[in-house]
């Protein structure tokens, strides 16, 4: 293989600032999308465990819809299709009025998509709690809302910290798809450097290192959180 190595290129302008701003966009998309995913996913996940069939069905439909369409297709639907099928004013706002439409589209799309995954984790977490816990809480006179708020949800979140972490890392990695609609995030920037300089190895290696470092840092943070929130004396929650 003949290849002209030039690691110094990464420190030259504009390439250094490309990488830096790309990393910033990646984090921004991932974190905002995660906030949507966590809130939406918690609601949908809880809905799927309620005794009433209507919210259960809505929850199931949501999860099936967002899990069975490839993320990239969803992104194109949000970006190209949604503005066309909305009423004229709303569509115009999405195309012209909204600042940074690509960025916000990516955030919303990733948030809804990841919300379906979060919902599955929340549902699994709640279902892993013995049914006696729900009965005991109801028997004390708590309303269903209170049962969820004080017993089922706090316990289930502790159980699902590891899978939730991997969903967060998923959103972090999936934010790279935003490049297809023109968000200049980390992967897009490394590709751009490759196209401008032909120093592909250096450019992709930088992105690789950044993604890996974030992953390992988040994993370490998760282990710490898990230890801090561990319930004293409890090894694992029995299945029902």
């Amino acid at each position: 293989m003949n290849y002209r190595w030039d690691w110094g290129i990464l420190l030259k302008d504009p390439y250094f600032s490309w990488i830096a701003s790309g990393f910033g966009w990646t984090c921004a998309v991932a974190i905002l999308a995660w906030i949507i995913a966590l809130s939406l996913g918690s609601v949908i996940g809880v809905m799927r465990t309620l005794p009433h069939p209507v919210p259960r069905a809505i929850g199931t439909a949501y999860v099936e819809l967002f899990r069975n369409i490839p993320l990239l297709v969803q992104l194109f639907l949000w970006y190209f299709v949604v503005p066309e099928v909305l009423p004229r004013e709303a569509g115009m706002f999405l195309k012209r009025g909204l600042p940074m439409p690509e960025f916000w589209t990516a955030v919303v799309c990733l948030g809804f998509y990841t919300g379906a995954r979060v919902a599955e984790q929340v549902r699994a977490g709640i279902n892993a709690i013995r049914s006696g816990q729900r009965q005991a809480a109801l028997a004390m006179g708590l309303t269903l809302t209170q049962v969820y708020r004080y017993v089922l949800v706090p316990v289930s979140y502790r159980i699902i910290i590891p899978p939730l972490t991997s969903d967060f890392l998923g959103v972090f990695k999936n934010s790279s798809l935003a490049l297809t609609i023109g968000v200049a995030e980390l992967t897009a920037r490394s590709r751009q450097i490759e196209e401008y300089t032909f120093q592909g190895i250096e450019a992709f290696a930088t992105a690789t290192v950044l993604y890996s470092v974030v992953t390992f840092a988040v994993m370490a943070l998760m282990h710490m959180t898990e230890k801090r929130t561990r319930i004293p004396g409890l090894i694992s929650l029995e299945a029902k």
């Binding site: 013995r130 006696g132 816990q133 009965q135 005991a136 809480a137 109801l138 028997a139 004390m140 006179g141 708590l142 309303t143 004080y150 017993v151 706090p154 316990v155 502790r158 319930i231 409890l234 929650l237």
Partner: peptide
């Protein structure tokens, strides 16, 4: 039902204390 249950105590086979 909540009101009624709050005045009828119940004790379960598996205790069902809230672990957290």
């Amino acid at each position: 039902l909540s009101q009624l249950r709050s005045r009828v105590g119940m004790v379960f086979q598996n205790f069902e204390l809230f672990p957290h």
